[in-house]
């Protein structure tokens, strides 16, 4: 049983890292980014390319930095222009961006699935409650926990974190206090994109890399954001953990309907608590 819980934490941790980027970008730019799963996918490919040259740890770092820089570029050229547009325009443009990024990866790395080896330091298994569990999966849980805690501490205790929370709640008043809201937004989009890239890199030894790999995590990340409450960091955290467990236990105990379970949860939330787990009823 404990092994199943840990496997649920692995998936929940990855979901949280992707979903929190969606929350950050939506909170500050009011843009629902359908290309976010592609940033996860691109992070995995950047890691694949860098690991071959410079090793696993540099690969993780490179994925985070390259995707953060791409986030800055996307903020300036796409998200900033979309923030006051009709939602349908946002959907079309970010979905188009998803297709462009997937085609870019197909052109550079081809259509075949690629694999990334687990680094030597994290190979092997440990015995937990009589069952063996891969060390790399424990690393994924720890990394998600550390990054999630770091992000929470940054948002709660730093000046920039205060500006981010203020801006997400009321951009006009925040600007009125002298905060350069464009710069804060650009930084936060970079952090969100960097986290998506980093989670793609962390997930790369667990998954077969393909240009379409961003699709499924994007859908489940959206479910996390809806279940948690749009714009809520703590809600996304709780929802990612719940969906990670539901997904994993579903695969183990009711495999025929496992893929439906997150959707059923989202439907129930939308019907009975549309503001999400952490949202406030309006």
């Amino acid at each position: 049983m404990l092994i199943h819980v840990l496997n649920g934490l692995v998936y929940g941790g990855l979901l949280y890292l992707v979903a929190v980027g969606l929350v950050l970008i939506f909170g500050l730019r009011q843009v629902v980014n359908f290309a976010h799963g592609s940033l996860f996918m691109l992070g995995a490919y950047v890691a694949y390319a860098t690991i071959a040259i410079a090793g696993f740890w540099i690969g993780l770092l490179a994925a985070a930095i390259v995707l953060a820089l791409l986030g800055l570029l996307l903020d300036r050229t796409v998200f900033r222009q979309l923030q006051d547009q009709d939602p349908i325009v946002t959907v079309l443009v970010t979905f188009g961006l998803l297709l462009v990024l997937e085609d870019f990866v197909r052109t550079v790395w081809g259509r075949d699935n690629l694999t990334v080896a687990v680094p030597q330091l994290l190979q092997g298994t440990v015995d937990i409650a009589g069952a063996s569990f891969p060390i790399y999966r424990l690393f994924v849980i720890a990394a998600a926990a550390v990054i999630g805690a770091g992000l929470t501490i940054w948002l709660k205790t730093s000046r920039v974190g205060l500006y981010v929370r203020a801006f997400a709640a009321d951009p006009v008043t925040t600007g009125m206090q002298g905060v350069d809201t464009e710069r804060v937004s650009a930084s936060v989009v970079a952090v969100g994109a960097g986290l998506a890239g980093l989670s793609g890199a962390i997930a790369s030894p667990l998954l077969a890399l393909s240009p379409a790999m961003g699709g499924s995590i994007l859908i489940e990340s959206f479910i996390v954001v809806v279940v948690g409450g749009f714009g809520s960091f703590s809600g996304a955290f709780v929802a990612a953990l719940v969906i990670g467990q539901l997904q994993n236990f579903g695969i183990v105990f009711v495999p025929s309907i496992a893929s439906m379970v997150p959707f059923l949860l989202m439907m129930a939330i939308l019907i009975y608590r549309p503001e999400g787990l952490a949202g406030k009823a309006s």
Partner: peptide, 12 residues
């Protein structure tokens, strides 16, 4: 800003 405490509103 209701998402911030009184003190945080002042610090802002």
């Amino acid at each position: 800003i209701g998402a911030l405490s009184v003190k945080e509103n002042l610090v802002l």
